[in-house]
Design a protein around this nucleic acid. Structure first.
Length: 274
DNA sequence: AGACGTACCTGACCGC
DNA sequence: TGCGGTCAGGTACGTC
């Protein structure tokens, strides 16, 4: 999916629906990630009170003290448009009192939508065990040092664990480790204090920079407006380690390597990242 | 507790 | 052109 910067960008792109009232709802009969008893028709006539993001979840609070929780999975897209021409993989759409439409489309259906009481959001099964936001103050050197101390597995996989820090997926961990000059193969518990400091700093800088550029568009991610993000143009390692035709590290000119860790592709420079 | 494999899905792309 | 294999922004769950 969209990682944190993409979800943040989508959230910012739909803030306009705040204060609007739902007039019509479309739902498909396809199951998303979880089959749920959710009846989106319950949204009719409700007003959108607030829209926020926690980790990769969008939380939309409604005027009846309920909230929609939306996760985009790997391929989910949200668009805000003037009209609704139903397309393949559109799973729900709501029309507002100014005739605009909010549409959720997800080809792979790894995403989900849930509707719960607003007071239960923090205790939702998918939200209650999440670690800190990468851009927040709680994600600091002391916290990360403590979190990594018993982790014998590699730092790359460990940092993608949402209990440690949320929203950092395969793209941004590859870029963050390159920026911090840390090998993705290094055991998490073996990172020195200065490496932990560098990793935090790199992750925060890269996530913020990606948000500033509207996220990364590879394959099918687009903003709510349909425009592409721009951060993909600044990738230094992600996607640059093609086996047959690897690109060169911008710093040392060695070939960028592509390996597989816990089933996910890792891109790195073995010369710069120790 | 931690580590690892697997499952959930569709579509794009590559090699034959 | 078609077919099979592989890969893709994520996450929960089962098992060792």
């Amino acid at each position: 999916m969209p990682e944190l910067p993409e979800v943040e960008t989508i959230k910012n792109g739909i803030l306009d629906v705040k204060g609007k009232k739902v007039t019509q709802i479309y739902t498909s009969d396809k199951k998303l990630r979880f089959p749920s008893a959710l009846n989106l028709q319950d949204l009719k006539d409700l007003e959108i009170k607030d829209i926020r993001r926690r980790a990769r979840y969008l939380i939309i609070s409604l005027s009846n003290n309920k909230s929609l929780i939306i996760h985009l999975g790997m391929s989910g897209k949200i668009s805000l448009t003037d009209k609704f021409n139903k397309e393949k993989h559109d799973h729900f759409a709501t029309q507002f009192n100014d005739d605009s439409w909010l549409i959720y489309n997800d080809a792979r259906r790894f995403g989900f939508v849930d509707l719960i009481h607003s007071s239960d959001v923090e205790n939702h099964k998918m939200l209650k065990n999440l670690g800190p936001e990468p851009l927040g103050n709680e994600f600091n050197e002391k916290y990360l040092k403590e979190s990594l101390k018993n982790k014998g597995s590699n730092i790359k996989t460990t940092m993608m664990d949402n209990k440690i820090v949320v929203g950092i997926g395969n793209i941004y961990i590859n870029e963050s480790l390159f920026d911090a000059k840390i090998s993705p193969l290094k055991a998490a518990k073996e990172l020195s204090k200065t490496e932990i400091t560098r990793l935090i700093s790199s992750a925060k800088t890269i996530i913020q920079s990606a948000i500033d550029q509207g996220g990364s568009s590879i394959s099918d991610y687009v903003k709510a407006s349909g425009e592409m993000g721009n951060f993909q143009n600044t990738f230094k390692v992600y996607g640059r380690g093609d086996k047959k035709n690897p690109e060169k590290c911008l710093i040392c000119k060695d070939n960028i390597k592509k390996i597989v860790q816990n089933g996910r592709s890792t891109f790195y420079c073995s010369n710069c990242q120790k």
